[in-house]
Computed example of a mutant assay.
Amino acid sequence: MVETGDIAPDFTLRGTDGQLLSQYTLSDYVADGYVILSFYMNDFSPVCSEQMCDLDDIDLFQFEADVSMFGISPDYVYSHREYSRQKGITFPLLSDTQFEVSKAYGVYDPELESGVRRALFLVDSDRRIRHSWVATDNWEAWDHSTTEALKAALDTLRI
């Protein structure tokens, strides 16, 4: 598993912003600042919906020009597009259908029904992991303090 201080594995995945389908490459986005990667089990699961909607609703990241955010799950882009539309998710959702990125980040777990452990990573412009969180229990309710810790890590980097 990648940890704080490690270099984040680069990747290119298909995804959607809720409308358009595109290719997203991590290294293209870190050049402009920070990237938040939110790994989640699947679209429409209750605990993941809470996690994704919280990240979207708190207005901490999406209006900051130097922060990009991506959700990553094994679902296909067409599921992501519908999920984005129904839940009002404003950041791109990426499809890791073969678990390549999940494996590279160490959040792939074949023992889990979804194959993915919920996780957050903050990546800086050097592709270094600056903050990480991995759920010990995928079905544990989303804790808003996780988002607050992520925001605090980002604020610390900007000082």
Score class of each variant (00 low, 15 high):
38 S>H: 07
133 W>R: 02
136 T>I: 06
50 E>A: 15
84 S>F: 05
119 A>D: 07
146 T>S: 05
62 Q>V: 00
97 T>C: 14
136 T>L: 00
107 V>M: 12
130 R>F: 05
98 Q>R: 06
111 E>G: 08
121 F>A: 02
40 Y>D: 01
134 V>P: 03
31 A>D: 11
51 Q>V: 05
94 L>K: 11
73 S>C: 14
135 A>G: 05
148 E>G: 02
101 V>C: 00
150 L>V: 01
133 W>V: 00
85 R>C: 10
94 L>G: 12
34 Y>T: 08
137 D>G: 01
108 Y>T: 02
106 G>D: 04
98 Q>K: 10
83 Y>F: 09
123 V>Y: 10
72 I>R: 15
115 G>C: 04
149 A>V: 02
38 S>V: 15
58 I>H: 10
99 F>I: 04
111 E>D: 08
92 P>K: 08
118 R>T: 06
148 E>I: 05
65 A>I: 00
120 L>C: 04
135 A>L: 01
93 L>C: 13
93 L>E: 11
120 L>F: 09
63 F>M: 13
149 A>W: 05
111 E>N: 14
95 S>I: 13
138 N>C: 07
82 E>L: 14
103 K>H: 03
145 S>C: 03
131 H>N: 04
92 P>D: 04
138 N>M: 12
38 S>R: 01
115 G>A: 02
112 L>W: 11
98 Q>M: 05
73 S>N: 10
